[in-house]
């Protein structure tokens, strides 16, 4: 899932380790989300959004948005 996590994290000068610590996940998990190797659960997506003070859809691209509008 395309996302802005790397951009937001580097904007705050946090390492992946630091963001992982704040989220309660491993550095590998942060790296996997940033490189789109892992789609976070809804709970983790909300935690990420809360840490950056943004809405989930401002961080994660909703690939289903167009489909919903078509229907």
């Amino acid at each position: 899932m395309k996302n802005q996590v790397r951009l937001l994290r580097s904007g705050r000068r946090w390492t992946q380790e630091e963001l992982g610590r704040r989220l309660g996940v491993s550095r590998q998990a942060v790296n996997a989300i940033e490189t789109e190797k892992h789609d976070p659960s809804l709970d983790l997506a909300y935690r990420i959004a809360a840490i950056f003070g943004l809405a989930v859809e401002q961080i994660f691209e909703n690939g289903h948005a167009d489909k919903t509008q078509d229907e």
């Binding site: 491993s26 590998q28 659960s41």
Partner: peptide, 8 residues
């Protein structure tokens, strides 16, 4: 005990 990514 692992996080969701490591678990998966």
């Amino acid at each position: 005990d692992s996080d969701e990514f490591v678990r998966g």
